[in-house]
Design a protein around this nucleic acid. Structure first.
Lengths: 144, 144
DNA sequence: TTGATATTGATAATCAATCTCAGGATAATA
DNA sequence: TATTATCCTGAGATTGATTATCAATATCAA
């Protein structure tokens, strides 16, 4: 349950960019780190508001953007249009299995697929920068 | 250059759903079929307007949705937030290589990757319904 | 403590996409 | 062909998520 590492990363990022700390940012970071789920901006907003009812919506967005910039988080854009923020630190690269019924995620990883993707890109003369693989289906729980 | 097949599909779909034909729908379909590119709703709107300046924006959206419902087209949501419509009829399943510089697409397909995806989903107890793979990079032209 | 600068919350603005609605078009039927 | 129930249309309003703006406030190095 140590989020020290992440806080250090954010700390360093803020300083190196000439930004400043604030209670709001600390609060948002803490709440974000405590939540293991992939949250939407709105969900995080509601969570943070429990502790700090004065928080503004824009601040959530601004701060989430900072998290993405410093590598603590990443936007996950889903087919239904919603955007969720996932934790990146301490999580190796992975893809996602998304249940179309309950909306839950499973993080998956297959080096073989990664390798084939690189080969595919190379064959077409592309310099591959990143990729996005989403597998949609019905999860174990929902199918029973 | 025969789009008869597609027009028949749309015809059948319209009838089976108890919908009606209209000049607007015919015009939009023809323009859509003529364009081999992956268009945005806005691009299609401008194209259709050349022939029918009275066309409304909502009609484009409504009709594109119909194309998707009847299997003639599919929405492609990109990382930058834009949505493009690609042709489906006569195109087998494929994934996309997207150039981050010029925005061009290449359609790619690798049965091996597909197989591994299915295996991956199965291992997690998922019934795989569909997937989405986007490979972002710099294309041959743009890197030189 | 100061002062330059970043941050904040409230609100307005933006943007693509969708909804509404009154008038027009379509097509099955008589 | 006329009738008529229903669908379709364009214009403009609306939505919902995200950003931009701005005056007041907080931060922090000196």
């Amino acid at each position: 349950m140590s989020s020290e590492e992440e806080e250090k990363i954010f700390d360093y990022f803020v300083k190196s960019k000439g930004l400043k700390h604030s209670d709001q940012r600390r609060g948002i970071l803490r709440t974000f780190l405590k939540t293991e789920r992939h949250v939407t901006a709105d969900e995080l907003y509601r969570l943070v508001r429990k502790r700090n009812p004065a928080i503004g919506f824009a601040t959530i967005y601004r701060t989430l953007k900072l998290f993405c910039e410093c590598g603590l988080s990443r936007e996950l854009k889903l087919e239904n249009g919603s955007v969720r923020y996932e934790h990146l630190y301490g999580h190796e690269h992975h893809d996602h299995l998304v249940c179309v019924k309950c909306g839950n995620f499973i993080e998956v990883m297959n080096p073989e697929i990664e390798k084939l993707q690189k080969r595919l890109a190379k064959k077409e003369g592309f310099i591959l920068q990143e990729h996005k693989l989403l597998l949609y289906g019905i999860c174990r729980k929902c199918k029973s």
